[in-house]
Computed example of a mutant assay.
Amino acid sequence: FIAIKVDREERPDVDRVYMTYFQATQGGGGWPLSVWLTPQLQPFFAGTYFPPSSDRRYNRPGFKEILLNLNEAWSTKSNDIIDKSKDAIEKLTKAIEKQAASIETDPDLPSNTSVQTCFAYFANDFDDDNGGFGTHPKFPQPVNFNFLLTHAALNHQANGKVDTSQLAIEITKMTLKKMSLGGINDQIGKGFHRYSTDDRWHVPHFEKMLYDQGQLAVSLADTYAITKDELIGQTLRDLISYVERDLRHSKHGGFYCAEDADSLSKKNDKQK
C-alpha cells in the first residue's frame, strides 16, 4: 500500500470526489474517510473510522484486519476488483451527469414559493423541546439560522406577516439558547464543539472547527441585534474570546482550522 493523507480542509475538491463514491456505493458518509484505489487510481473500497484493532463489541473490523483482507483479495482477485471498480465509476458518472442535466439553471432569485416551502420545512422539523432540527446527532448548521433571520426580515417588510417572521426569530433564538446552555458549548473553555450526540445538545463530539465558530458568530450577532437576549450576547463574546485565545496563531498570524478531540497525551502536558 502507498498511503496518501489528504487534508480535506485544504482540498475539499478531492474529498468531495471520494465522499461521493463512498455515499453512492455504501449509502453512508462521514470522516475520517479512508479510500483504497487501484493502481489506475480508481476507488474500489471505502469506509469511515476503523479502530487500530478489531472491536468485537461492536463487530467492527480493525484497520490492520482491513489491510490484510484487502491485500489477500487483491492477490487473488485483482482482475475482478478492477472490473467492479470500473463498473462502479461508470455508473456513478452517468448518475451524476443525469442529475446535472435535470437541474434547471435559473439566474433569478428563488421564487417566493420556494422560500415559503423551505421555511415550512424548518418549522415542521423544529424540535420544540430542545431546539434544532430533527433528531441526534445534531449539528449547529448556522446557515439555517441565516436563512430564517433573512426570511423573517424580508417577509415582515414585504408582506407584513409578523407571525411568520416572529416564528422564524423564535426558532433561531431558542435553538441558540439551548446550544449555549448545553455541552456542545464548552462551558469551561468556551467555543462550540462539532456536534451533539444527543437531542439535548448535552454530550458533544469534542472537536472544534474554526468555520463553525465563524459562522455561529454571525448567527449569534444577528440574533442578538434583533432580540437583545443577554445569554446570546454573552455566548457571542465568549466564542470570540475562545477563537482569539486558542485558535489564533500568536507568532505568524492567521488561525488554526480546528482543535482536535484528543485529550492531552500526558498528565502534565500543556498542549495537545
Rank of each mutant, 00 (worst) to 15 (best):
E104N: 11
Y18V: 08
L37E: 08
K64H: 13
L181S: 04
T76I: 15
D262N: 09
E230C: 12
Y195V: 04
N159S: 07
A88G: 07
H202P: 12
T223F: 09
L236I: 01
H205N: 04
L41N: 09
A258P: 08
A225Q: 05
P32V: 05
W36T: 00
H249S: 09
I103H: 03
W201V: 05
W36Q: 07
Y58L: 08
G254N: 11
T20C: 01
T105F: 10
D83I: 15
K208L: 03
Y18D: 03
T105G: 07
F45I: 04
A120K: 07
Q42E: 07
V203T: 12
G160R: 00
T164Q: 09
D127Q: 01
K228N: 01
N79I: 10
W201E: 05
I188A: 15
K266I: 03
A88P: 09
Q99M: 01
T20H: 08
R194L: 02
L220H: 09
S85F: 00
A168C: 05
D229S: 09
R11F: 07
G47P: 02
Y195P: 08
D106W: 01
E230V: 13
L236P: 06
V218E: 05
G214N: 10
I226T: 04
S250K: 12
A100F: 15
G189R: 14
V115N: 07
P107M: 12
F192N: 14
K177E: 05
R8F: 08
D186K: 14
P140Q: 04
Q141N: 13
E10K: 13
T150D: 10
Y242V: 13
D106R: 03
K77N: 06
L92T: 10
